[in-house]
Nucleic acid binder design. Structure first.
Lengths: 145, 145
DNA sequence: CTATATGCAAATAGTTTGCCTGTTA
DNA sequence: TAACAGGCAAACTATTTGCATATAG
């Protein structure tokens, strides 16, 4: 489930150059790291994971890579709470159920259609960012006690 | 339009105590400041505005007040981009159209119904947080040139 | 060969914390 | 008169920037 499909090497660099960016091994590594685990890591977490296979990578480069990947539509960026931005490998239209107690994030695919609200005149929509806040089953359960 | 209705003094302190908080003049001031202008200020901006009528207020207190107000359902907190959290006086169900170019925020009321997607089993929804990213009319226009 | 990207370190937000004093209920 | 809230400054976390070097196209 969930079309978290990693782009092949050639499609990856094509996407980069279409976006006006060069291919670099750092960008490839950061991309690989984000696609590898289907969670919602912060830049710091991605930095740590990337260092495992590329110890010389720097903080600034990770931010730079992530920005490039976001601009090319290869990963998504989400703000679920105060503090660190998270990154998401799932480029399918979906929303995030976020547990305010434990921080767990669940991707839920979005059925088309529902998004037919008229916005401000002339607003050119790029993408939707839908988060549902609350308590996950585990946390809701343990609060009842 | 937009039910941005400021609570009366007594209703305000009642809301606070229901949430387990005490009434303080600082909380009142911060609340007044947020309700006064229908925009989406950051904590820093609220700090600056509050200082005008209450020069001795501190940074930490503004954060504390805002947290209390959010927990009591008196203001909303939104994360629209990397960086500072913004606060919103509009407690009506609505979504935010956010211009990625100039940072302008537009509130758009949400018609009920549309939100009938099944989430993760047992997830206890508290609230929805819907942002629409893109370019406002002005910014979309000036890019065409 | 040249624009773009990297690495490093320092700078800058944004937010939180600790500690002591003041105030609310 | 407790428990909670405020003020201040320092600590922390997240992100950005400047600059010299390296590298992709």
């Amino acid at each position: 489930m969930g079309m978290v499909e990693k782009k092949s090497g050639s499609e990856f660099s094509e996407r980069l150059s279409t976006g006006g960016f060069r291919f670099t091994p750092q960008r490839q590594h950061v991309y690989d790291v984000v696609m590898q685990k289907r969670d919602h890591p912060t830049a710091e977490e991605i930095f740590i994971r990337t260092k495992r296979t590329m110890p010389e990578i720097s903080h600034a480069t990770v931010y730079n890579c992530l920005d490039a990947l976001v601009k090319c539509g290869l990963v998504r960026q989400v703000q679920l709470e105060r503090g660190a931005t998270r990154f998401c490998p799932n480029m399918e239209e979906h929303c995030h159920y976020f547990c305010d107690a434990c921080g767990e994030v669940f991707d839920v695919p979005l059925q088309k259609d529902s998004t037919t609200m008229p916005g401000p005149k002339g607003f050119q929509v790029d993408h939707y960012d839908i988060a549902v806040h609350g308590l996950c089953a585990d946390c809701a359960g343990s609060r009842k006690k």
